[in-house]
Simulated assay, not measured.
Amino acid sequence: MATGGGRGFPRAWRSRVPWLWVLLLVVIGLLRATNRFLIDVANGHVTPFLPKLVEELTGSLSFGACLPLLFIALRRMPRTLWAHTLVFAALSLAQTTLMIAMRRVVFGLMDEPAFAYGSTVWRYLMEVPTQLFFYAVIVVGVWLLDRYREGREREVRNAQLESALSEARLEALRLQLNPHFLFNTLNAVSELMYERPRVADEMLARVGELLRATLSATTQEHPLRDEWRLLDLYLDIQRARFGEGIDAAMVADESLADTPVPFLVLQPLVENAIEHGGVGDARFVRIEARRDNGQAIITVRDGGTGGVPRAVNAAAHTGIGFGNVEARLRHLYGDAAGVRLEAAETGSVVTLWLPLRTGATP
């Protein structure tokens, strides 16, 4: 949050900032006058408190009146010794002149002209040490504030760049799926085009529907119900391709319908199960989604010959598929999600776990 020009304050407080600034200056003057009065009491030489209060208030208020111009000068001036010397000289001259004028007016209204003093050279010089001290404090404070702002802005920029880079990586991973799936499907269509043209036409129609859905996506996540719909479209393509040779089913806990999942995260897993987990011309795949200990658990089970080595080798050497899913989960959820490939009694099973949450997806 910015701090300059009242921007660091809540909107309701911005109109109060000038009054709070004046109140601070008054408090400073009051404290300094009290200090001087108590010193006189301690020394056994008590003098009236009111003149001291007027002197200190006119000193603090006149200095406060010059500060806005000082801040403007410090923002625009070159950071050189000569520039600081000129700015301080101008500040000292202006503040002392204003202070002397205020004291003459106030003491004149109080009918106490004896407490006012003339604008001699010594009066100007006697204010220099105090003014120099506060000038140095302000310059150092402005410098530290600028460094703090620059550090915060640099952190924000780095966070934005890191977020943009992460989003770009995720988008690249997601976009890998479309050509990978498209090439595999078109190869299958080309195999069927002459022998079973009607099946090839049906597959192309399903491919068009699925690509329209994927290309119109604008987020990295969507509800599980939408992922289920896209997966059903993909399985329709495979049913058209394999006919009765494929046995595919999906089962999901209805309470998980709104759970956000990565876009098209299941399709490459199901594709691996169909392409590498079959026996001859038979294809068996079961996709299940359930909840367990605050997580959404999704399993993709195939009906291969049993034993994990074949499935592991197939998944590991696709370059996309399993590795893509693993990378996307790591980017989106860190250690809160993951994917694992294991042997089953017949074939293999891929288990994917995600943090269980509901609501709008980013």
Rank of each mutant, 00 (worst) to 15 (best):
T3L: 12
F9W: 08
R11Q: 13
W13C: 11
S15R: 11
W19A: 14
L20G: 15
V22A: 07
L23P: 02
L30P: 04
L30Y: 05
L31H: 12
L31G: 15
L31M: 11
R32G: 12
T34I: 11
T34F: 15
R36I: 11
A42W: 05
G44Q: 13
P48F: 04
F49K: 09
L53T: 04
L53V: 03
E56T: 07
L57N: 00
L57V: 00
P68V: 09
I72G: 15
L74V: 10
L74M: 12
R75A: 13
M77G: 13
M77C: 08
L81T: 12
L86D: 14
L86V: 15
A89M: 15
A89C: 06
L91T: 08
I100H: 03
A101P: 07
M102P: 12
R103L: 06
R103D: 01
V106L: 08
L109P: 09
M110T: 05
E112I: 06
P113I: 07
A114Q: 13
A114T: 09
T120M: 07
P129Q: 10
L132F: 14
L132I: 06
F133P: 15
F133V: 13
F134Y: 15
Y135P: 06
W143H: 15
L145S: 15
D146S: 11
E150V: 05
E150L: 08
G151W: 09
R152F: 05
A159D: 08
L161S: 13
S163Y: 00
L165M: 12
S166D: 10
R174D: 15
L175T: 02
L175P: 03
Q176L: 05
P179C: 06
F183S: 12
N184R: 11
L186T: 09
N187W: 10
A188V: 13
L192Q: 14
L192G: 12
E195D: 13
A200P: 07
M203Q: 00
M203L: 04
L204C: 08
L204G: 06
A205M: 13
L210Q: 02
L210H: 05
L211T: 14
A213N: 12
T218D: 05
T219H: 11
H222R: 04
L224N: 06
R225E: 04
R225C: 05
D226N: 14
E227Y: 00
W228L: 15
W228V: 15
R229C: 12
D232V: 05
Y234I: 02
Q238D: 09
R239N: 10
R241E: 04
G243A: 03
G245N: 09
D247P: 08
A248G: 05
V251S: 15
D253Q: 05
P260L: 01
P262I: 00
V265C: 02
V265L: 06
L266W: 00
Q267S: 14
G277S: 04
I287M: 09
A289L: 14
Q295R: 07
I297N: 08
V300N: 00
G303Q: 08
A311R: 06
A311D: 10
N313H: 07
A316N: 11
A316V: 10
G319M: 14
I320L: 08
I320Y: 03
N324Q: 10
V325H: 01
A327E: 04
A327T: 04
Y333G: 04
A337I: 04
L341H: 02
E345Y: 02
T346Y: 06
L354G: 00
L356V: 02
L356E: 02
G359H: 10
G359R: 03
T361S: 13
T361G: 08
